[in-house]
Amino acid sequence: MSETVHIAILRGLSISWEKYDWYHRLKERRDLQIVFVCIIIVFVLSLCAPLLTGQNPNSQDLRGKNQGPSLDHLLGTDYLGRDLFARVMYGLQTSLGIAGTTILISFVIGVSIGSLSGYLGGWVDNCIARIIDLFLAFPSIILALALMLLMGSGILNMIMMLTIVQWASFARLIRGQVLSEKNQDYVLSSRAAGLPGWWIVTKHILPNCIMPVIVLATMDIGHTILTISTLSFLGIGIPPAIPEWGSMINSGLPYMRIAPFNVIIPGLMITCVTLLFNIAGEGLRDITNPLADNEGSL
């Protein structure tokens, strides 16, 4: 590659954090603009659920059960006569709330442990790495199942259990990044200048290698929503009173023939939101990584 290209790449690497560069890359990607706007809409919706529907998602009306769409009930009702639209909106709140909290907590825990391990090296790193491997070795659903059966159901328990399942993948990723970054000349230079370890890690190493972990986190929000839904679908996790898409599918299945919306709508919502977050994650990576070759995943 010519020096011109080299210089341009280095320039990109060092100033990709300036809004200027993000903004320009985002400007060129109409598909990502749409995706990010959708994500904002989704977040706003989840906060405003009570405002969007006058119906109470939990009020039962056994005479009006399994109805199709009507003026009163935009998407119809479920097997207990509860408004489907309201339940879907409140369900979004539940799913996104749990997933978001889980990812945030496991991100903090995973990054802290992983970066500490990577920077310290030696036997400390060996021990922690083996612990991370152990957690990663269990298939997440099985681990989640086992933990739920142990701890019982409930939102708080679910968050705790999902965090236990999730933190290790962040830890592994950041550890790998830190291991390679800590041998870079600018880190050595900081050490030679007498700067302490914690300063170097927080001010230099982490900011330079956190992006892939943030991208993983965005993609994992979608994955976590799926896990919650799967667990609810299997009947464990969220108490049935709280609207949640997975449990809605579960309870709507027996009535699939007469009231298919009760299964299709929640299923569609899970798919859409997961897809949205996955694409957003990849898009975030493309925007912040000037070396990405991706022409556009959409």
């Binding site: 280095l10 060092s14 954090w17 000349d185 050595l188 230099h204």
Partner: peptide, 16 residues
């Protein structure tokens, strides 16, 4: 005791 390195482009934190 200070050190000056071979690769100037990575001797400084690229994002500061």
């Amino acid at each position: 005791m200070q050190m000056i390195f071979q690769h100037p482009e990575i001797s400084f934190d690229p994002r500061r």
